[in-house]
Design a protein around this nucleic acid. Structure first.
Lengths: 205, 205
DNA sequence: TAGATTGTTAATCGATTAACAATC
DNA sequence: TAGATTGTTAATCGATTAACAATC
């Protein structure tokens, strides 16, 4: 199997999403050129990316939307479900719990953890909220893959330590602060200030 | 002036954030090596990045934290404030309005827009909520730089069109759907499904 | 067949890493 | 001075783009 770069993988999800919406609109076939226009990239990049997953196109015709979608999905997800634990059930945490696309994409928020006793024991969108004190135990039991940090930044390192101790694969950090974790644990920082400023700077140049 | 790559700019924000926290802890000097360890990168990359902004380090000693921070900030932000308009005041929108770091980072959420009449006219964290019908006019008046889409995905394209019509520099899209905008307008898609899956896939490989 | 479009090889571009002289 | 660390040039690596034969 050819090795597939991180960037190609990221784009593959975008292709899948776009294909889903095309399928909904009853498009059966699409060329790399048209797909590129929709997504805002080039046809060559799309063909190059797709070629990593196999030869699924027909020269002169294009790609069957349904077939291409399953090829990409199969390669990337196989039959796995990504199990997620959420830390912090404030506005942001609640927004994440209600995010509508997870189920379809085989992402499952399995549990949520909170410090605030008034929230513990509740259920939001069918996800139960536990005390953060029970986190290590419950995460291990449920076989969590990824932890999300959606707590105030003062607690982000504390929570990161709990997550790491539970033999997790990755962390998505929404707190506007750097966290320290062993380098085997992959971290994705979604720091809104950084996202805004870098978008802004790029538009200025 | 040497041209500074997008990646360097993104990392510069991380450096700034880390320096801020070092300054708070009364660290006056830091070497590229130690900074690299904290952030999880290499000393060479940090030196290379910093060198784009000027010669601010002392061989054998390192960088003065305060000086380095201002050098980076000055280069990137100058005296500008980034003016933002928020579309959608649900859980996610509210979380964004309450995001604690914006003010410090010279990001200002100037207005919010909503469809739901019960929310229009309210004020959240000192930001006033207007009807989305008034968006074009108000955005132009206030000189908005960036629009944030935090509405359900069914409305994301609609809102994107409104934002584009107001001569904006960039869009940050939280809706789990692709939007179509002219290519002069930069878009940052923060699609949680994609973030999760790509993190997950990367941890598997 | 002629036109369209794929998949791949080669060329280019950009970013990271290695090596090292300069200097505190 | 000796050890540490910067800033830069050269080498490597990886990703994008160009070119084009194969094929529907």
């Amino acid at each position: 199997m050819k090795k597939v770069s991180k960037k190609t993988i990221q784009r593959a999800f975008l292709y899948i999403r776009t294909l889903k919406s095309l399928i909904k609109k009853n498009r059966h076939v699409i060329s790399s050129k048209e797909l590129a226009e929709i997504i805002g990239t080039t046809d060559v990049q799309i063909r190059k990316d797709i070629s990593k997953f196999g030869k699924v196109g027909k020269p002169g015709i294009g790609y069957k939307t349904v077939e291409l979608k399953s090829t990409l999905e199969d390669f990337i997800l196989q039959e796995d479900v990504v199990k997620v634990a959420l830390f912090g059930v404030g506005n942001l945490g609640t927004a994440i719990l209600k995010y509508p696309e997870f189920y379809k994409d085989r992402i499952q928020i399995v549990v949520a953890f909170e410090k605030d006793k008034r929230k513990i024991g509740k259920e939001i969108n069918e996800v139960k909220v536990y005390s953060v004190k029970e986190a290590s135990k419950i995460m291990e039991e449920k076989g969590i893959d990824i932890g999300i940090i959606a707590v105030p930044k003062e607690y982000s390192q504390e929570v990161a330590d709990v997550i790491v101790s539970a033999d997790i694969k990755g962390i998505i950090n929404f707190a506007p602060a750097s966290i320290n974790v062993p380098k085997e644990v992959r971290v994705k920082n979604i720091d809104l200030s950084i996202e805004f400023l870098s978008l802004y700077c790029n538009t200025k140049m």
